[in-house]
Design a protein around this nucleic acid. Structure first.
Lengths: 251, 251
DNA sequence: TGACATTCTTAGCCAATCCTAATAATGTTG
DNA sequence: CAACATTATTAGGATTGGCTAAGAATGTCA
């Protein structure tokens, strides 16, 4: 029953992993002191946590050395950060909470969200962003869509939304198919079709890149490759050759 | 720094208070065993928690005796349960989560929600229930309304909503003012006006009964007095003489 | 390079929250 | 009412996650 032996993470250990991720992102590697400062604890507490995390193989750690995440640690960090960001986005973009409070709130809640609620929250946020309806009729429809797992009604809804968005957006590529590679940073689109079926599209499907999914371009590298996108709260980096196979519709 | 001495409550102690509240509601008083069973802990853990809660004056406790909440404990219980219910309602009514998972999720999160986020969540849920719009325009409006503290735009929105609801609801008291006392259980309304200003209306205002607030009738006693209502997640019991001074509009 | 400052680890402590096992009180029933 | 069953308490232990204080390792600079 010794938690030290298992892969399990407590809320507090997740906080350490998250902190290490950000420090490593910013500075290449983390020192105990950086972690202590970021989390507001004493260095001795950090040492203890690092020893546990090292035993669980989430961090590369040796006494008096700098700390980095193992690949497992990185996986965990990404999972935690995704939770955090989805919550924060919900607080900021939907509830209109100030970003500082939203950030704090996301920190407190990120470790405790049951998966089905988390997933549904993402769907809900996407629904809000793509469906031009409201009121009881609207939430009912959302709920029905989620429960029945057939997106029929909502596809109509999304398409309608896309149409009206297109009207607003005058004369931009209305005649030919556009792909994910055509989007500019900050633009969003709804996936209409995945042109090829192979291991790459399968991996993308696992991450949420499926028909009907809302996808947002975050950054595009100088030559249009790679393209960083956000889908269902995941941050993905796609090759341009993958992106051109994803037919989308602006929205 | 000993928490035993202060009024402060840990998440776990809040769980005990909540459990005691429900058991007392159902059976008049709680025994250690009931609490242990409800929370899935051993009786010895319950004894420990009860001793701490008794020291903090949240429960009436003596060894080998039944347990009840003090008035302070009751206050706390209500606060916690309100958190719980608002979260659960959000999960069920907005996200469409199954009630068992929603219940579990509310339990996990109820102790950690920052107040501003909690308050805004309630506003958001009310907005969804009263405003017949959707899409970005719609959430933008919601956020603007919350931020600017002037409900102008949304009042229009609410009135419009009320109008369309009224159309659906044929020939019911469309010509004269209706008050909270006219609503049937399960009916909802939006507060249009508070007819008197006195200490009672002030207390109601503190609980969220103000112009524009969504109010729902839960139960009405045989002679129409008292009336149990829900506002902003609070459960209130109003005298009929108070209710007739609250002018509302069905919605 | 040696002295001093900073950083990190170790060791030991405390509080919260659970546990088990033993014991005490209370309830039930032939 | 005595024996047995149930329930509650106490005592003692584990785990988690923080702390302080002392000392070891590392870094800096005259």
């Amino acid at each position: 029953m010794d938690i030290t032996e298992s892969r399990q993470l407590t809320a507090s250990l997740e906080d350490y992993i998250e902190a290490i991720f950000w420090i490593v992102s910013a500075k290449g590697a983390a020192r105990a002191r950086d972690i202590a400062k970021r989390l507001g604890v004493k260095a001795s507490s950090v040492t203890g946590a690092l020893q546990v995390l090292a035993k669980k193989k989430y961090v590369n750690y040796a006494p008096y050395e700098v700390v980095t995440l193992t690949s497992e640690g990185l996986e965990e960090a990404k999972r935690i950060i995704r939770m955090h960001e989805v919550l924060r986005d919900f607080f900021v973009n939907v509830l209109g909470i100030k970003s500082k409070i939203a950030e704090e709130g996301a920190c407190k809640l990120e470790h405790n969200i049951p998966k089905p609620i988390f997933d549904r929250l993402i769907e809900f946020m996407e629904f809000i962003e793509t469906c031009p309806r409201a009121g009881k009729y609207w939430t009912d429809k959302f709920i029905k869509q989620c429960n029945l797992k057939k997106a029929r009604e909502c596809e109509k809804c999304i398409e309608q939304s896309i149409k009206s968005f297109k009207k607003e957006r005058t004369m931009t590529q209305t005649s030919r198919e556009i792909t994910l590679a055509d989007l500019m940073p900050k633009e969003k689109g709804v996936v209409l079709k995945m042109n090829r079926r192979n291991s790459v599209t399968k991996r993308l499907a696992d991450m949420g890149v499926v028909r009907g999914a809302l996808i947002e371009v975050e950054r595009v590298a100088p030559l249009g490759d790679p393209i960083d996108v956000k889908v269902k709260g995941y941050h993905l980096s796609l090759r341009k050759e993958e992106a051109v196979n994803i037919i989308i519709s602006r929205g």
